[in-house]
Design a protein around this nucleic acid. Structure first.
Length: 229
DNA sequence: ACCCAGGCGCATG
DNA sequence: CATGCGCATGGG
């Protein structure tokens, strides 16, 4: 059975319902006068190859020290950042990476994310990619979930899914997969659809493909070459 | 005691 | 150009 991205979106939404990814503690940011979008950008770096529960601990530590803001990170010593984000793992490189990000935003945009995101999509993307430690998935996550830009995020699960579904695309080529999904999906409400579909793909992989595959109940089993049970 | 998580950069061949 | 490896923590 052939399955295009729009069919995939339908099947997954039908099974899992609306996803709520990257909910941020707006109360905290209102109280602190900080930008919730920066929390998303931090999370995007901290979650690289890391379980989200560990990232939450790191973000909590930063909040506790009123450091979850561009100026907060920019001002802190790297050694201090390292300690606060320790639970998220890879803390040496991640401390450098978030410091680079904060410095970039602070110096070039006065830490103003309206200014930063109010630019052409590809320009923002290039600037993010120029930062050491921000690769395509991290950049696109920031653009899609913090900047509300219509760009589809491709992660390891998406690539794996492209291997297992009859989809005519090189499953190792990030931008090829991205273009394919963006071409095939509806042209209205792109941002919301991209946000939802990426979250749905991750959710489906977690529920049905982790540890013991549970393909029997998977909504994609009719289309998945991996479907075993 | 393993295995894995919402990657990325760098070193090799 | 394409793999392979190190990076580190916490939960299953």
């Amino acid at each position: 059975m052939s399955l295009q991205p729009d069919g995939l979106y339908y099947l997954l939404t039908d099974y899992f319902g609306t996803q709520h990814w990257w909910p941020v503690d707006t109360g905290y940011h209102q109280q602190q006068g900080t930008d919730p979008r920066f929390e998303i950008m931090m999370g995007a770096i901290l979650t690289q190859n890391t379980a989200w529960t560990n990232v939450e601990k790191a973000l909590q530590n930063l909040k506790k020290h009123n450091a979850l803001s561009v100026q907060g990170i920019h001002t802190l010593q790297e050694a201090q950042v390292r300690i606060l984000i320790q639970p998220s793992g890879f803390f040496n490189q991640k401390a450098q990476r978030v410091k680079k990000l904060a410095a970039f935003l602070s110096i070039n945009y006065q830490g103003d994310l309206d200014l930063f995101f109010h630019q052409e999509l590809q320009k923002i993307r290039m600037e993010l990619l120029s930062l050491k430690g921000v690769g395509p998935e991290t950049a696109d996550s920031m653009l899609l979930y913090a900047g509300h830009k219509p760009i589809f995020v491709v992660d390891a699960y998406t690539k794996r899914l492209c291997n297992r579904l009859p989809i005519p695309v090189d499953s190792k080529d990030y931008e090829a997969i991205q273009r394919y999904f963006e071409q095939q999906l509806p042209t209205s409400n792109q941002t919301v659809i991209y946000q939802q579909l990426h979250a749905l793909i991750v959710e489906c992989a977690k529920v049905f493909c982790r540890t013991k595959p549970q393909c029997k109940r998977c909504p994609l089993k009719e289309h998945c070459s991996f479907a075993l049970l």
